[in-house]
Write a protein that binds this DNA or RNA. Sequence first.
DNA 1: TGTTCAACTAAACACTGTTCAGTAAATTTA
DNA 2: TAAATTTACTGAACAGTGTTTAGTTGAACA
Lengths: 204, 204
Amino acid sequence: MGIIERKERDKQEMRLKILETAQQIFIEEGFEKASIRAIADRIEYSPATIYLYFKDKNELFFAVHETGFEKLILEMTNAIEGITDPIEELRTRGFAYMKFAFQNPEMYDLMFIQNAPMESIKESDIWACGHQCFMLLFETIQRCIDTNAIRITDLHIAAMSIWSFMHGLVSLKIRNRFQKFGEGDVDELMRNSVDQMIQLLKNE
Amino acid sequence: MGIIERKERDKQEMRLKILETAQQIFIEEGFEKASIRAIADRIEYSPATIYLYFKDKNELFFAVHETGFEKLILEMTNAIEGITDPIEELRTRGFAYMKFAFQNPEMYDLMFIQNAPMESIKESDIWACGHQCFMLLFETIQRCIDTNAIRITDLHIAAMSIWSFMHGLVSLKIRNRFQKFGEGDVDELMRNSVDQMIQLLKNE
DNA sequence: TGTTCAACTAAACACTGTTCAGTAAATTTA
DNA sequence: TAAATTTACTGAACAGTGTTTAGTTGAACA
């Protein structure tokens, strides 16, 4: 009989329910406010129940941050549709990354700033969704190198440099370190910085 | 009589004692572990006493993060002693910044990643120590621009780009996002990225 | 000497993540 | 069908967090 199958389905459903509720509260009110009790309250279960589906808060928010990567990877993939010039591809992916951060600041924070999700990765294995995302960057940079479009020849140095630049820009903004930086609009200065960096990277 | 003067001295002394103890625990065991109760325990006062000297934990850790900036500003100032070439000055300051982050990861985290210190800055006024630190960067970049040594001509764009790059590099490392990035040593890859960026910035 | 005032604290409040013994219902076995 | 077992769930507790408040104690002043 399909009782064990139904039970398995129920279990997955419950897990998803917790996950979606965690994500909801977290996106609306931030990581701090997304407490186990707040999540339990909304799904009308006791806090202890959550621990039957997730080892701890870190593991739950690891699962949440994975859904963030799914979204980012999708957007970074779709962004370059129809683009052939490698530099234009790099520029577009850069702006897609920045747009994601602006539109999902709490999720970006969880994915690239918070300690929580990284703490649930066992010493032996890898940050799979992170690596999957870097692959998109590697891909684009490799194309730039192959067509001699870029002034950096080492793939890993280029990837680390470009990602660091983008992350620095976005995370300093998210964590409020750009208060009154310069005179004009900070967001515009950020966009200009990205464009300037592309110019710097371009060969000729 | 000097009673009120002595009382004022005592008050300042107590404030300093709290501040130094907070800093100690925080550097040794991180921000999470540096609780009001842990600080109170070590100085052998009740937790409530701390609130007679600091409005809340944010204000206390704003004061701690200020001592971090004093150190960073000192190191960034001393680093360039005897250097005349603007590009070399920029490079040296970059490495000094990175060295500070590596040697004082918890303090760097507090200064540039944590929300706590920024939350105690009133809407009206400015992040003074942050701005004082940027001035050193502006200074160096201005020299680069004046001598035509750099491929960026806008001071604010250059400052934002270079700071973002350095912060991205260092904060991704601190928050554990460089696990197994590439094949070799991550620290060396980071240093190579800084050197590569300097090459990119250099005119000719 | 009595009064005032400042420094300090015990205890509580409202939270947090997490664990565990116990319950109740669904499922399986006899 | 009745009894035994397994599963899902929870109340209550533990140990911690930042913060507030009423109340105490000792020093300074009148």
